[in-house]
Design a protein around this nucleic acid. Structure first.
Lengths: 328, 328
DNA sequence: TTGTAAGCGTTATCAC
DNA sequence: GTGATAACGCTTACAA
């Protein structure tokens, strides 16, 4: 009576002298005589039995696994998002299968293929390829990207975020603004940050400059630009809006190290709402994306509302958070 | 002849008029007549067939999935590690199932249980509970933690890293050193950084102070300490070694903003080797952990060398990298 | 209430 | 070289 490998339902059945079907019912919470239930449970405990997810999935074609397709975890926003999404999925009893695409369209496409052959229950994706063909039958939700009319897209209210940043800087006395962004060439939600920002500046008649860098280019130009605009310890702009906290952090550090005081001479607002793990505070004044809420929404939509694809674009509200790099 | 659901091997067999067995052989690269092979392949293409991973796993009890048990992705080191590990696994045709534990022993234990019932092929874990019971039969590799004599542990050479940092600071003229660390109360590899650092200071007769904060405490004390030690724009120490780049970044920023120049008045070295995604440069002078190499090693050991558990502790070499916050 | 048996989509062992 | 056929561990009618 050697039990080398992990026990199966059959072993449990044999152990407690009941049939496979009864054991299965106990495990799945279906009605079963009290006595039988107890015997089964005892046997399960004794043998340390656990259902074999794979066998179950094969039969029920429900795998309780969701793919998370992300470009990278080296940007804190993606890392935070993945962190929250994974926790949401785990809370609902799902497994998160992580796929890192490195911003590569080919890998993205491969990931989608894998999703199918792995019979996953769904995909949450943040991709960079404009034309990904998704298997029809698999539910998908995107973050910050519009992959198709019928595919729900979750994002923060990027346009409003841009407005907020401009309003705040102006309100705090800035008169010469700079908007810095590093984005992918792909059309995505985050581009709206720029529009919101510019719209406010134009309406209020405030002078501004927009600086655009691409993801995939060398980025020294950013620092060269900054260097070029420091004269005699003063910076040419008195308010800067960066499209991520990470970028903002770099700018802040660069300026600080060169004697330009933040927020004394320049006020800086980032985007994302990244929190310093050590202090529990934001790394800079910022437009906070509700990452936890976005994650929860994405998971809920993916898992619950499939089919009822009404207003599929969900913009979650952003908030301005002072974080020491503005005068407020 | 409705084909609603995804095609199965049976469909392929019917399509090409050959048997299931033959189709299976083609798919698995087993010897098959050339003509048959071509017919099968044509049918596969036509139907867009993909193997059902779950059915295959059930039969072969090989799931090609590995669990990544991580405390969080909100610390860049963990995020980087997870990023690299996932890519290594994908390159070898494995899926990474991510589990975020939030530094919680209970969740860690639950993750290990899940690993078993999901029949995963292995686990790579970075945990915080001292006593995790791992299923005997499942291969496991840890990062930075000693879970047991027979469990391979991959880490950077932490002791050497501590030595390097001290040597470098001294060599660059520092005479009053500070070591700041934020660690978990659990005994892990990273604690050796301190020993290495102290050993060099003691040998060279250099004055130093060690500051220890815990993961799970509020961390204002760090900033209070720094504030307390700034007098008239000068900092009490001329060299600081932080046990992560993240901590170093905060310290650098804090000091810069208060007019203490880095590296002019204080030189600072971090640990990890985090690279700024925008500049492609390190965020500070640092002791670089070979994260990619560690990941690759972990995956290789997990997948290849199981059973041959010789020297199970692998310390990979660290490197000092100047990053603008030291005079070198 | 409990048991029997037919699959789910593969792989693998046989005969042919 | 190719094709039946019996598993793998579980779910689920349906029968008892």
């Amino acid at each position: 009576m050697k039990r080398e490998s992990t026990p199966t339902m059959k072993d449990v059945a044999r152990e407690c002298g009941l049939s496979l079907a009864t054991v299965s019912k106990v495990i799945n919470g279906l009605p079963v005589g009290k006595k039988s239930r107890e015997r089964v449970e005892a046997a399960i405990d004794k043998l340390g039995y656990q259902v074999n997810t794979y066998a179950r999935a094969l039969k029920s074609s429900k795998t309780y696994s969701v793919a998370l397709v992300m470009p990278s975890l080296k940007h804190p926003f993606f890392a935070y998002l993945t962190d929250e999404l994974t926790k949401c999925l785990m809370n609902r009893g799902y497994r998160a299968v992580l796929m890192i695409t490195n911003y590569d369209a080919e890998v993205e496409q491969k990931s989608f293929v894998m999703v199918r052959s792995n019979k996953m229950d769904g995909v949450i994706a943040l991709t960079y390829s404009p034309d990904l063909s998704v298997g029809e039958s698999i539910p998908i939700v995107t973050i910050d990207r519009h992959l198709g009319e019928d595919i729900p897209c979750i994002s923060s209210d990027n346009y409003r975020g841009g407005e907020l940043a401009a309003q705040k800087l102006i309100e705090l006395g800035c008169r010469k603004l700079l908007f810095m962004r590093i984005t992918s060439p792909v059309q995505g939600e985050p581009n709206k940050r720029c529009s919101g920002f510019e719209s406010v500046c134009n309406t209020r008649g405030i002078e501004y400059e927009t600086l655009l860098f691409h993801d995939n280019e060398p980025n020294e130009p950013i620092y060269l630009f900054l260097e070029d605009h420091i004269r005699d310890g003063a910076f040419d702009f008195d308010g800067v809006f960066c499209n991520s906290d990470l970028l903002a952090s770099r700018v802040i550090r660069f300026l600080s190290e060169r004697g330009v005081s933040v927020p004394g001479q320049v006020q800086i607002i980032g985007y994302d709402g990244i929190i310093d793990r050590f202090t529990g505070k934001h790394v800079c004044s910022t437009i906070e994306q509700p990452i936890a809420q976005m994650s929860e929404t994405a998971v809920n939509i993916l898992l619950d509302y499939q089919g009822a694809s009404e207003g599929v674009n969900i913009c979650l509200p952003v908030k301005y958070i002072p974080g020491g790099t503005t005068k407020d």
